[in-house]
Amino acid sequence: MNVSVAERLHATGTGSALELRGVTRMFGALAALVDVTMTIEPGERRAVLGSNGAGKTTLFNCITGDFFSTSGTVRLFGEDVTHFPAHERIRRGLRRTYQISLLFTGLTVLDNVYLAVRGVSRGRFSLIRPRRSEALMQSAVELIEAVHLTDVRDTKVSELAYGQQRQLEIALALAGAPRLILFDEPAAGLSPTERSELVEILTNMPRHIGYIIIEHDMDVALRVAERVSMMHNGRIFKEGLPEEIESDPEVQELYLGGGHG
């Protein structure tokens, strides 16, 4: 737990973006994740596929620290964060979006993004009210532009369309200086046009930002990912390039068979 600054500096910069080793999560007697081992390189774009209940969201929760893993280790950018609470992991460059929108519906779009920007910077406890010109306020405004929400910047989130809320989710995840983002079904419930807009946002992201995406829509998932991991019953049973996965007979039987047939 006690890592010196020198060690941390050393650890960061080397190593993979994310390294899971034997991560297991039990809910009572039920094993939601079994011995998951996985490595994501910096800037890598990975899709995690699998049927409902395969353990994909639990995997995300264990990576972000929403839940702790029952056993195994989680390393972020070379640093062992297995016992770190969620906010400590976030401050190390990890971000996530949620499947069910967890936005602050009573606040405006700007306030939501401002909170996100503030959360990963100093002065979270500041009692001084922000000014328009403040750097953080500026970067919030820029983020809103990046996800095409400038028109509704001062609108309350509760009044946004569903697709816009999903875009805001992504803006929150882009706040600060993210290095690895976990996207939990970002395309769920989106219209075809919104989907292609999403694919555009994802593929145009700066190259140094890696991400893991859980997605049911194979078209979206295979277009935005460089590698694919297949999950079933809490285990990762296959990993490969999108084309390999698409043509794999076992995968087709287990997962694609139902969806495409």
Binding site: D66, H87, L102, L115, I128
Partner: peptide, 30 residues
Amino acid sequence: YVSRSPFGLALQGIRDNPRRMAALGYNVTA
């Protein structure tokens, strides 16, 4: 005044959605 400062806003965010605030890097308990 405090209710509209970053701290106050964060507090209200935590009231509505503590888990999300932790996922934005806030120390909810603190």
